[in-house]
């Protein structure tokens, strides 16, 4: 996954459209949507342990809301997907998983669950419902598929928080987002190092620009990128507004 020189952005900023198309394509390709569709169907996606009843196979429309609440719900939505993903990874470990890999993935699962439940509690009655994930495209029995999806979830999470920062009006929320995004970045680096150990990939040129900067991507583009992984339709048009 480090050979995207043709599509790599050469300038550090102002190329939003190229970035988003690039990201979407990278995201979809890396998750193996095109090639391994439906290898394993997760039982109704019910691996998230919150109280909301989930209705298998149906997707609701979920509005994230506006202003800072919208940003927090946006983060909550992404953390829900990450938590559900790693919960599944640990429930059905891929073939040949090592103890070291399992320990790392378990740690990450726990961090994402803490993030998810923290946002849920912080939002109180303003929280969106529990989302129904759709990981049908991910073959959880294969290391490559699982770590590839993990990498994309983490890189996407980092870019999402980086892009949402300037939408936040309350400095306390901004700091909270900052406390979480660096943990997501640590995850991204470690996952990338598991895939290609001791290489430059932990902060690889496929994702880091010529100013040595990570991505910052707007909510609309992130939501488009993760669309395939959630049954509900998420609308975030007013996030941060």
């Amino acid at each position: 996954m480090n050979k995207h020189t043709k599509t790599k952005n050469s300038s550090g900023k102002g190329e939003g459209e190229i970035t988003s198309v690039f990201n979407r394509r990278l995201f979809l390709r890396s998750a193996g949507l095109a090639t391994s569709l439906g290898t394993i169907v997760i039982a109704a996606g019910c691996n998230d342990d919150d109280d909301d009843p989930m209705i298998p196979g149906t997707g609701d429309t979920v509005d994230l809301g506006s202003g800072d609440i919208g940003v927090l719900n946006y983060a909550y939505a992404l953390e829900q997907l990450e938590a559900a993903f790693y919960t599944q990874v640990i429930q059905t470990p891929y073939n040949g998983i090592t103890d070291a890999e399992k320990a790392i993935l378990t740690d990450i699962r726990d961090h994402e669950i803490v993030h998810r439940d923290f946002f849920k509690a912080a939002l109180g009655d303003k929280a969106i419902k529990g989302l129904t994930p759709n990981f049908a495209a991910i073959d959880f029995s294969k290391k490559e598929a699982v770590l590839g999806a993990a990498k994309l979830f983490e890189d996407t999470g980092v870019a999402a928080y980086n892009g949402a920062g300037k939408l936040i009006k309350d400095p306390n929320y901004l700091l909270l987002a900052g406390k979480i995004v660096s943990v997501e970045a640590r995850h991204a680096a470690v996952i990338r190092d598991l895939i290609n150990p001791k290489s430059a990939d932990f902060a690889g040129d496929d994702i880091i620009d010529a100013n040595g900067m990570d991505k910052a991507i707007a909510p609309a583009d992130i939501l488009a990128a993760v669309k395939g992984y959630v049954k509900d339709t998420i609308t975030g048009a007013n996030v941060g507004k």
Partner: peptide, 24 residues
């Protein structure tokens, strides 16, 4: 930097790189 949105964004983009470095 909350009143300087673009600089804030650049700072965040560097911040997460430092975190990637730190993890490794």
């Amino acid at each position: 930097l909350i009143a300087d949105p673009q600089i804030l964004e650049y700072a965040l983009q560097v911040h997460s790189i430092e975190a990637r470095h730190a993890a490794v």
